[in-house]
Nucleic acid binder design. Sequence first.
DNA 1: ATTCTTGGTTGCAAAAAGCAAGTTAATCTG
DNA 2: CAGATTAACTTGCTTTTTGCAACCAAGAAT
Lengths: 144, 144
Amino acid sequence: MTKSNQISRSSCPVSCALDILGDKWTLLVVRDLIFFRKRYFGDFQNSPEKIATNILSDRLKKLEESHLLLRRRDPANARKIIYMPTEKCVDLAPPIMELVRWGAKYVPESNVHENLVQRFEQDPVEFMGEIRLSLRRENEANKE
Amino acid sequence: MTKSNQISRSSCPVSCALDILGDKWTLLVVRDLIFFRKRYFGDFQNSPEKIATNILSDRLKKLEESHLLLRRRDPANARKIIYMPTEKCVDLAPPIMELVRWGAKYVPESNVHENLVQRFEQDPVEFMGEIRLSLRRENEANKE
DNA sequence: ATTCTTGGTTGCAAAAAGCAAGTTAATCTG
DNA sequence: CAGATTAACTTGCTTTTTGCAACCAAGAAT
C-alpha cells in the first residue's frame, strides 16, 4: 500500500492539504509523532482523546500511503511496530503550532503544554532542527 | 443558535481547535472568508471545491455558533445574507498560511495563488492589519 | 505450557456526507 | 403588475465514515 489514491477536490493548496489532513484525528496522530515522540500503536491509543483502535489503524495506514510515516518492525521486539514520521510529517510542526496558538487564545478549556510551546516560540528554527536531528538518530538506530 | 455545544475531547489546544475546525470543509469556508473576501452563500457555493448546499448551510451555522462569523441581512438587498468573519476567524490566517506553505511544498498538483502568499510572506503583520482594517470598514458599512 | 501483551480485525449501530429535487421569499423584466 | 428569476436554504434518500465492543493471532514473559 504505497499509492496515494486521493483525487484532489481542487488545486488550492489548502484544499489539497485538507484532502490528507482534514478530519478530527489525523493531525492528532501527527501531533503525537512530532511533539510527543510517540512511535507505537499503544502510545497513540493512550493519548487523552482516546482514539478507537479501528480508526487509529486506518489513519496510520493512510498516513503511510501519503508518505507521512514509515512502518518498521522493532528490531528489539518482533511484535512491536515502529511508526516513524517522515520529513513531510515533521514539516507539519508550523501549522500545528499555529493551531496551538489559536486554540490557546480562543478556546478557554484548552491547556497548553507550556514548555513545548515556549521552546518553539523562542526559536522555531532551532526547535525544528532538534526534531530533525533526533529523527535522523532514530533512523540510524532502526536501520534494517 | 448561539450556544457552543461542543464537548471537547481533551484540553489539548490542537484537539480543541480540531473539535471546531477538523473536517474537510470548515477551513475552506474560512479560507474563502479571509483570503477571497467571500460574503454570500452563493459565493461559497461557487468555490472550485463545489461544496453541497446542505453541508455549506450546516457549516455556516456551526461557524456562527462558534463565533467565527456573524450573519446579517444585506441592507441593500433583503433576500441576501452577509456572512462576516469575526476576529476569531481572521486569526486563523496564520495556521491557514502555514497549511498553504505545506501544501505547496508537498502536494505537486497544488497551485498557489501567488500574490496572496507573497503578500503574507513579505509582511505578515501588515497583511493581517489590512484584513482587519477592511473588516472594520465593512462592519461600519453594514451596521444596523 | 499458559498467560499476557501488542497490534490489530470484525460486526454492527449511529452519525455524517453527498446528491438531486423542492421550497420560499424577494426582486428583476416586460 | 404578472411571470420569470435569483438567493438561500430544506428535505428525502443513499452511501460513506465513525464509534463501540468484542474478538483474534503472533510473539514474549513466567
